[in-house]
Design a protein around this nucleic acid. Structure first.
Lengths: 72, 72
DNA sequence: ACAAAAAGTCAATTATATATTACATTAAGT
DNA sequence: ACTTAATGTAATATATAATTGACTTTTTGT
């Protein structure tokens, strides 16, 4: 069974893209130059990352801002 | 003569969208709940706004994140 | 069942986005 | 030329994003 975004996960798009790219939170973190906790917090929601960080994450995961961070 | 983005302006897309929407920096600022200076700094570049603020600006100007904040 | 890796989370600190106040400059209207 | 609105900046203060370190829980593989 695979469940993504059961309860606490709020940025499902980003988590999905990361899992699809087969990269761990820790690896993504090091690739974009932040801490694992920061990635974790972004995926868990309750967070307001900077544009620079959002952009870096998008580029690593081959997505755009709209793909991962635009709602509606 | 009309010039947008002569030298200091780095986020030309955002400034253009704002001018096209015929809204001043001050009005945009109040609409998204920040200070005029913050809007000014974002347009001038050298700035790393939060995702929340970027999103708010986009919605006020009827644009998406990619429209205003995505490069290439 | 066990071990290892990945993920979730907390408290305390540091870095930085944003606010505040204030002043100078440029554009627009009369 | 004058007046006013809009814009460009700067210094200091405050709120919060992000770090650090540590610990617990969940997944994954053997």
């Amino acid at each position: 069974m695979i469940i993504i975004g059961g309860d606490a996960v709020k940025n499902k798009k980003m988590k999905l893209a990361r899992v699809e790219a087969d990269v761990s939170q820790e690896k993504l973190a090091s690739l974009v130059g932040v801490t694992r906790q920061t990635i974790n917090l972004i995926e868990a929601g309750n967070y307001n990352p900077s544009l620079k960080l959002c952009t870096a994450i998008c580029k690593v995961l081959n997505k755009t801002l709209n793909d991962l961070f635009w709602e509606e």
